[in-house]
Design a binder for these strands. Structure first.
Length: 484
RNA sequence: CGGGGAGUAGCGCAGCCUGGUUAGCGCGCCUGCCUUGGGAGCAGGAGGUCGUCGGUUCAAAUCCGAUCUCCCCGACCA
């Protein structure tokens, strides 16, 4: 079959208009729909099931690494937010306020949480008294409201869903270790399950979380060459413990402030999935998080309910028993061709077709979403082959994304080339930077590119290099990109 | 928040400039027949407070004002 032929015709090709392509995919595959309130969306069942799959895997990993779940209030008293100055400055412009309860005006306004450091800090102060109470390792799954001026489904919505971990430790070293452990947990999750390669590292001062001592992040390249932050892990130092008075008596009977971290991933990951893997035919969902991994389409010809459907059911049930998520599409009102396009657009990794010719030959036709490859397989060995296919598709999707990332990561010889690359090709620019925020600002003004990440494993090594813009000595290798 | 564009049936659009019977078209939807290996065909049918509120007028989808939402480009920002 021709790889160039476009079977799915109702989506604007992404080469024509990337933004439009993105929004159309989301609506037409029923991931989400716009709600009648600015910046808010409804996550529809198909989109929500992807989020649930993400959730259950992340939740498992968080618990395996020693954390437990809890739940804190949606509202935060204004006074709590004001305690950490940087935190307040960072979030004040985008906080939604509750001013009334029924018809009575509240004495103190309540913030709808933009993040929960403040309310959790307040509780930790009550709970933590001794070094024996530490570490506190708590995570919560919650909704968050940030009154953003520019919104986009999944990438930046007024309300979104996430998990936020909040931990408290005895020592600075322990907090730093936790911060980096979570960062690598996120990286491993995104690469293994979402099949999206990421660059991990530290944020510059300009880009760090409001109130953090250090912010680390994983950044991925979307297929238009722009960067998307996929998750963050903050070392909060003692910024919050000092203002919320979270103190404990240490092993030497001295009062100390705890060292804290916070970290999160959100429903933005669903948007990343669309933009990192999708093509002109629609979504491509990696098998490990796809709502359905396999769709079985019986070809309805003649007395198909008697001759074909039972075999299709048998195949579907056999795969289900092996733990494969299978959808049998036996709807009568659609033709096979229609179903092929529909499930292709929805990004199901593997399609099985079974018709009279296949019954005759004892085979099933398989079509991979990642490559479009069509292959007839013997029914006898089908289960085993399907499982192999799924793991191969997962691997191949990661490799294709990695190849794209590598091909679009540029090293430039001077600032003129830097500007030229940002204007034409986009992608990541891997280069050296002096460490000065003013210089970083200037680069942003000139090119719209910001520092996405300072890879931590090499951040101190190459001290003989010079800043790409100002030529001052540089210690930091950094990645620049235009970001979402 | 600044500049630009848009909102008419589930989706995509025409009509608006130049106000005037019953607001159209394609796809989708419903019923029936017939079909089904890459988005079938025929026949019949349903579906609209023209985003919302107000104004002008004998009369408003159409003119005026406000407002809400979406898209693009900036500013801001996980």
């Amino acid at each position: 079959m021709s790889q160039n032929e476009r079977f799915v015709k109702k989506i604007t090709p992404k080469s024509v208009d990337f933004s439009r392509w993105y929004v159309e995919i989301i609506q037409k595959t029923e991931l989400a729909d716009y709600a009648p309130i600015k910046g808010m969306m409804v996550i529809r069942p198909y989109g929500y099931s992807i989020w649930e799959n993400i959730q259950s895997i992340v939740d498992k990993r968080i618990k395996e690494s020693g954390h437990t779940n809890a739940y804190f209030p949606l509202f935060i008293p204004e006074g709590f937010l004001q305690k950490e100055t940087e935190h307040l400055k960072g979030f004040a412009p985008e906080v939604a306020w509750v001013t009334h309860g029924g018809s009575d005006e509240l004495e103190e306004r309540l913030a709808v949480r933009p993040t929960s450091e403040a309310i959790i800090g307040n509780m930790y102060a009550k709970w933590i008294k001794s070094w024996r109470d530490l570490p506190v390792l708590i995570n919560q799954w919650a909704n968050i409201v940030r009154w953003e001026k520019v919104t986009r489904p999944f990438l930046r919505t007024t309300e979104f869903l996430w998990q936020e971990g909040h931990t408290a430790h005895e020592t600075s070293e322990e907090a730093q270790e936790e911060t980096l452990m979570i960062l690598s947990l996120y990286k491993e999750f995104v690469e293994t399950e979402l099949a999206i390669p990421v660059i991990s590292g530290m944020k510059s001062e300009r880009e760090k979380f409001a109130g953090a001592m250090k912010t680390y992040a994983i950044e991925a390249m979307m297929s238009d060459g722009k960067a998307l932050q996929m998750g963050t892990s903050h070392n909060l130092g003692q910024h919050f413990s000092k203002v919320f008075n979270i103190r404990f008596e240490d092993r030497n009977q001295k009062l100390q402030y705890v060292w804290q971290t916070s970290w999160g991933v959100s429903t933005r990951l669903v948007g990343a999935l669309v933009m990192a893997h999708g093509d002109d035919s629609g979504l491509k969902i990696p098998p490990r998080i796809a709502p359905f991994q396999v769709v079985v389409i019986p070809i309805a010809i003649g007395d198909w309910k008697k001759n074909i459907l039972p075999k299709a059911q048998e195949i579907a049930n056999g795969l289900k028993k092996k733990g494969v998520r299978v959808k049998l599409d036996d709807r009568e009102e659609f033709t096979p061709g229609w179903k092929f396009s529909e499930w292709e657009m929805r990004g199901i990794p593997l399609r099985l077709e079974i018709g009279p010719k296949d019954i005759e030959k004892g085979q099933v036709v398989t079509v991979r979403r990642d490559t479009g490859q069509k292959e007839a397989l013997a029914q006898a060995s089908l289960d085993k082959k399907v499982i192999e296919f799924l793991s191969d598709i997962q691997k191949n999707m990661f490799e294709m994304a990695l190849k794209f990332q590598e091909e679009n990561t540029h090293e430039v010889k001077d600032y003129a080339e830097f500007k030229a690359v940002m204007e034409s090709k986009r992608g990541f620019i891997k280069t050296f930077w002096c460490g000065d925020t003013a210089c970083e600002e200037k680069i942003k003004d000139d090119t719209m590119a910001t520092i996405r990440v300072i890879p931590h494993d090499i951040e101190k090594k190459k001290n003989s290099r010079k800043c790409i813009r100002c030529q001052k000595p540089s210690e930091s290798l950094v990645y620049f990109a235009k970001a979402y």
